[in-house]
């Protein structure tokens, strides 16, 4: 069964068909959630909740990119959780400090250990920098520069105008660049 057939079956209540869609998209959904949330555990919870919401609302899916439709649900679920964490900051503070020691599934075992550590350390620093952006800027930056979405896909996913996506991504990149310069992750020659 291809994706559209699985979607049609899932719309008729076929949970097995929906689970095939889950298996096809769970990696992307989890990564987006992880970068948005900054915490592996919170990302897993949000991803699971988003898939449940998606199954319950799949009858409202009217065609188009299923990936974008699904990621919109994931991002909205993450926004809800971030707003909840903001109201209860004591629980969110620890989660924002991502520690790869607690996410062994992120380590690429094909790399040499020292390379993997450096890469992991850089990834942690980038994640901390991303977490300093607003959630809206974070989302377009992740979709574009981490997940490689086109502007059109970002428009479909975020339901924003193209101009808004362009300007928002431009601001997000500049802000992140400034953060990385402060952390000396970028060469000092780019300081202005």
């Amino acid at each position: 069964m291809n994706e559209s057939q699985n979607i049609q079956a899932a719309q008729k209540g076929d949970l097995a068909a929906f689970n095939r869609l889950v298996m096809a998209h769970q990696g992307l959904a989890y990564n987006v959630a992880w970068r948005l949330m900054g915490s592996a555990d919170a990302a897993a919870d949000s991803t699971q909740e988003a898939f449940i919401k998606a199954f319950k609302s799949i009858k409202q899916y009217r065609g188009g990119s299923f990936k974008s439709w699904l990621l919109r649900i994931v991002s909205n679920t993450c926004y809800d959780q971030l707003r909840y964490n903001k109201r209860r900051p004591t629980e969110a503070l620890e989660d924002d400090n991502f520690d790869s020691d607690y996410a062994p599934h992120l380590i690429d075992h094909a790399e040499r250990p020292e390379e993997g550590l450096l890469r992991q350390e850089l990834g942690d620093m980038l994640q901390q920098a991303i977490s300093q952006l607003s959630p809206d800027q974070r989302l377009v930056l992740i979709l574009s520069d981490v997940e490689g979405f086109s502007y059109q896909e970002i428009v479909q996913t975020t339901d924003l105008a193209l101009g808004t996506v362009k300007s928002r991504l431009n601001r997000a990149r500049r802000k992140l660049r400034d953060i990385l310069l402060k952390q000396e992750l970028l060469p000092q020659q780019y300081r202005q």
């Binding site: 990696g27 989890y30 990564n31 592996a40 996410a103 599934h105 850089l122 980038l126 930056l141 992140l176």
Partner: peptide, 11 residues
Amino acid sequence: LLGEMPRASAP
């Protein structure tokens, strides 16, 4: 740099 960020597999 963002493109080099590690991707996570679903836990």
